[in-house]
C-alpha cells in the first residue's frame, strides 16, 4: 500500500493543497477506517479528481477546487448521496479486478444499470433504468486505475447524473479472500428532481449498493446469483 501512495507522490506537484489530498488518498487506498468518515465535508469527486495522475490526467483535475466549490454551492454537499459498502469475496484480487474492469460485465450484477459500452481505454457510456420505463445516460471516465487494486471513475462534466466513486480491492487477513470496497457519491444537480434520482439509485442507496456487491460476490464465488424469481407458489 505504501508503494502505491509513493507512486502518487511522485506524479503530483507538491502544493499544500495536494499534499492534504494525497494524504487522504493514501488513507483511502491503504486505510482500514471508513472512507466517508475521513472525508467529512469534502466532496469525494474533488479528492478523486485532485489526485488523478499517473498518465490518467483528467480534465477536472486542475479545476477540482472550483468544481468542488460549485457542487457545494449549487447543492450543498449534504444533498449528495454518499454510500460506502464493503464485501469480502473468496477470490483473488486479480480475478475480481479483471471482471469488474470490463465494465460491460457490470449489468450482470447491477440491477439498475441497463448497459455499459466501453468507448476506449478511459471512457465508457452508461445507460441506467429510470422510473416509468425511462432511461438515463451519461459518459464516465476512469480517473485512476491501479491494476488489481483500484478503479476510480467520474462522470464527465454535464452528465445528467453527476457521479463519482471508486472500487478498491485489498487482501483480507489470513485466508479470508479479498475485501471489495465501493465508495460512491451522486450529486443531485440543481433543478433535477431529487425523487427521480432516489428512485434511480433506490430509496435506500446503501441497500442497493449492498445488494449489488452481494450479487457480485455470489456470481464470483458460486457462478450464479441466488434467486427465487419464478419459483412455484400458491396463487
Amino acid at each position: 500500500m505504501e508503494t502505491e501512495a509513493g507512486k502518487i507522490n511522485q506524479s503530483q506537484a507538491e502544493t499544500d493543497e495536494t499534499i492534504s489530498d494525497k494524504e487522504r488518498w493514501a488513507s483511502i487506498v491503504g486505510g482500514s477506517a471508513m472512507v466517508l468518515m475521513g472525508l467529512q465535508q469534502r466532496s469525494l469527486r474533488g479528492i478523486l479528481t485532485a489526485i488523478a495522475g499517473g498518465g490518467l490526467a483528467y480534465h477536472g483535475a486542475t479545476a477540482d477546487k472550483s468544481l468542488q466549490d460549485k457542487v457545494v454551492d449549487a447543492t450543498g454537499i449534504n444533498k449528495a448521496i454518499r454510500v460506502e459498502k464493503t464485501v469480502t469475496i473468496d477470490k483473488s484480487a486479480e480475478e475480481l479486478y479483471n471482471y469488474w474492469h470490463n465494465f460491460e460485465n457490470l449489468p450482470n450484477f447491477m440491477k439498475h444499470v441497463k448497459s455499459v459500452q466501453v468507448l476506449d481505454m478511459r471512457r465508457s457510456h452508461w445507460v441506467a433504468n429510470a422510473p416509468l420505463g425511462q432511461t438515463i445516460e451519461w459518459d464516465a471516465d476512469i480517473i485512476n486505475d491501479q491494476p488489481n487494486q483500484l478503479i476510480a471513475w467520474a462522470s464527465e462534466e454535464g452528465a445528467q447524473v453527476d457521479n463519482s466513486g471508486f472500487v478498491r480491492f485489498s487482501p483480507a487477513p489470513s485466508d479470508r479472500g479479498t475485501e471489495v470496497k465501493v465508495v460512491m457519491e451522486y450529486n443531485v444537480p440543481g433543478g433535477m428532481v431529487t425523487a427521480a434520482i432516489a428512485k434511480l439509485f433506490g430509496e435506500e442507496p446503501e441497500q442497493q449498493i449492498g445488494d449489488e456487491l452481494r450479487r457480485f460476490k455470489q456470481l464470483m464465488e458460486t457462478g450464479e446469483i441466488a434467486t427465487t424469481e419464478g419459483q412455484s407458489r400458491g396463487q
Partner: peptide, 22 residues
Amino acid sequence: ADTINYEEVGAGEALKEMTGGR
C-alpha cells in the same frame, strides 16, 4: 488499536465497513 467513537458513528456500521463487510 483502531478506534471508534460511538457517539460519532454507529459502532455496528463502522465495524462492518472496517472488517471488509464480514
